Simulated scan of single mutants.
Amino acid sequence: MTPWVVVVVHAPWYNTNSTHKCEGESIWKAMEELLYKARVDIVFSGHVHAYEQFTRIYDKKPNPCGPVYITIGDGGNRDGLALK
């Protein structure tokens, strides 16, 4: 039995940062259903130099069976925070 299913991607599929809007959209369209069916619990991403966390979500809507999306893009960042 697997207690947690965790996925790591580079560009976040969900984020509110205007500078990086839709950068992960092609992989999101190809993979989100697979992650949903696999019952993924958490998706970690980087790329955006800011922290952001979403509730469980699937197909751009809150869904109690979807994964939590967390952007953790500040580790080792020398460029400063992406504030937009």
Rank of each mutant, 00 (worst) to 15 (best):
H47F: 06
K37R: 14
H49E: 02
K60R: 13
W28K: 05
G46F: 06
I72M: 10
I70N: 06
G46Q: 00
G80Q: 08
Y69H: 11
G75R: 10
R39Y: 03
Y69P: 02
M31P: 06
H47E: 01
E32V: 12
G80T: 05
L35C: 13
P64T: 13
M31Q: 06
I72W: 01
A82G: 10
E32Y: 04
I72K: 06
I72V: 14
A30I: 07
V40W: 05
V40M: 09
K60H: 14
H47Y: 09
V48M: 00
G66Y: 00
E33K: 10
D41W: 00
P64I: 14
I42Q: 08
N63A: 06
E52M: 03
G80I: 04
I70L: 09
I72Q: 10
W28V: 02
E33C: 03
V48G: 01
V40Q: 00
I72L: 05
Y58W: 09
A30Q: 13
Y58M: 01
G76W: 07
G76P: 14
Y51D: 12
C65V: 15
K61T: 09
T55Y: 15
T71I: 11
F44K: 07
I57P: 02
E52P: 04
G46Y: 03
N63Y: 12
R39Q: 15
K60C: 10
V68Q: 09
G75I: 02
I72G: 07
T71H: 02
P64D: 14
K29N: 06
P64A: 13
V68Y: 01
L81Y: 13
E52D: 05
R39L: 09
W28Q: 10
D74R: 13
E52S: 07
Y36H: 10
G46D: 05
V40K: 06
N63H: 12
I72P: 00
Y36K: 11
F44H: 08
I57V: 13
D79M: 12
I70D: 02
E32P: 11
P67D: 04
K37T: 06
